[in-house]
């Protein structure tokens, strides 16, 4: 029974919401504009750290702290976009992956009075929790979780609506055209660089909201939550759902997060309770590695065999693979 209930539980929990938002941001980047951002974790991290540190160390109220987080993610987008968006797609990918790693090192090793190294930032949730309308938990979620989930899923709905409106507007038409052929768009007098920067910022800000939700769910901001795993899981979720569809990152993320949780539960049972797999092949520490190997393999296989995602139709493949 746990094999079903735990994954179902996890698939809607605060952490899953945080991945949904991260994947939605990547959908704007990769799905609609064709930008390769391999550092979505950096946006989530910058958002979460800015909010967390502002509240915990500087007593900034909750809403201004969130706005601060958004501002920092915009700055990050400018930092990564300005040098790279005039160049080949690889350069953005290289810089984003590098910035994400260096930021993680930065949060781990510097300004320990504010970032608290690996322990991370905590003590910033009271403002948010005081507004909690739930008096008790239900369905196995604590009342805090329920509150984070309510706000988180409302954010998801809001950003879905925003994305839906945008991709149907002339603005979205320019983005989709850039994805297909930048030069054609340029020849028609559109400032491609400017649109790419806007897309990078929008997707980054959505990613930062993923960071907020994750931080509120865990009640802490730790550097290791924002390693490359974060980005690649979000990427896999996006590809699974099928890029360039408004709801695909949501479906992909819930499905994939549920799947990962199922795998975790199953493997733990196989080595623990049921004792099917001997400890010499797999111990509890290694379950995480095996799960992530599955992530990597899924991403490869999806990209090779179903780049349009599970629900997409290859004929009207929204993403040109080249």
């Amino acid at each position: 029974m746990d094999l079903l209930t735990i994954p179902l539980h996890d698939a809607f929990a605060p952490l899953a919401v945080s991945f949904v938002l991260a994947a939605m941001g990547l959908n704007i980047h990769y799905g609609y504009t064709g930008l390769l951002n391999f550092g979505q974790a950096a946006f989530a991290a910058v958002g979460a750290y800015a909010m967390g540190v502002a509240i915990a160390s500087f007593d900034v109220p909750f809403i201004p702290a969130v706005i601060l987080g958004v501002l920092f993610s915009v700055l990050l987008a400018l930092l990564m976009g300005i040098p790279t968006l005039r160049l080949r797609a690889d350069y953005l990918a290289i810089v984003t992956i590098a910035v994400a790693e260096v930021l993680r090192l930065f949060f781990t090793t510097t300004n320990k009075d504010y970032f608290h190294a690996r322990d991370g930032v905590s003590g910033f949730t009271s403002g948010f929790r005081n507004a909690n309308p739930y008096s008790e938990g239900m369905l196995g979620f604590s009342r805090n979780d329920l509150w984070v989930m309510t706000v988180g899923w409302l954010l998801v709905a809001f950003f879905c609506l925003l994305t839906w409106l945008l991709v149907r507007s002339p603005w979205g038409r320019v983005l989709k055209s850039i994805r297909e052929d930048e030069d054609a768009v340029r020849s028609l007098g559109k400032n491609v660089y400017y649109y790419k920067l806007q897309a990078l910022i929008l997707g980054g800000v959505i990613g930062a909201f993923g960071g907020f939700v994750g931080a509120l769910g865990l009640a802490s901001v730790q550097p290791d939550s924002y390693n490359l795993d974060f980005t690649f899981i979000a990427f896999t979720m996006l590809i699974l759902g099928g890029a360039a569809r408004v709801l695909s990152p949501v479906v992909g993320a819930v499905l994939f997060w549920g799947l990962l949780s199922f795998l975790q539960t199953l493997l733990s049972k196989l080595i623990g309770e049921w004792g099917v797999i001997p400890d010499s092949i797999l111990n509890s520490e290694q379950i995480g590695n095996v799960r992530f190997m599955v992530v990597g393999l899924s991403l490869m296989l999806l990209m090779i065999y179903r780049p349009q995602g599970i629900f997409g139709d290859k004929k009207e493949l929204a993403i040109d693979g080249r």
């Binding site: 149907r168 507007s169 002339p170 603005w171 028609l188």
Partner: peptide, 19 residues
């Protein structure tokens, strides 16, 4: 064809949201 038109209000980010 529509993409070719210049000076489109809807090609601005904020206006794009408001059909």
């Amino acid at each position: 064809m529509r993409l070719g038109a210049t000076g489109q209000i809807g090609e601005r980010f904020w206006a794009g949201v408001l059909p």
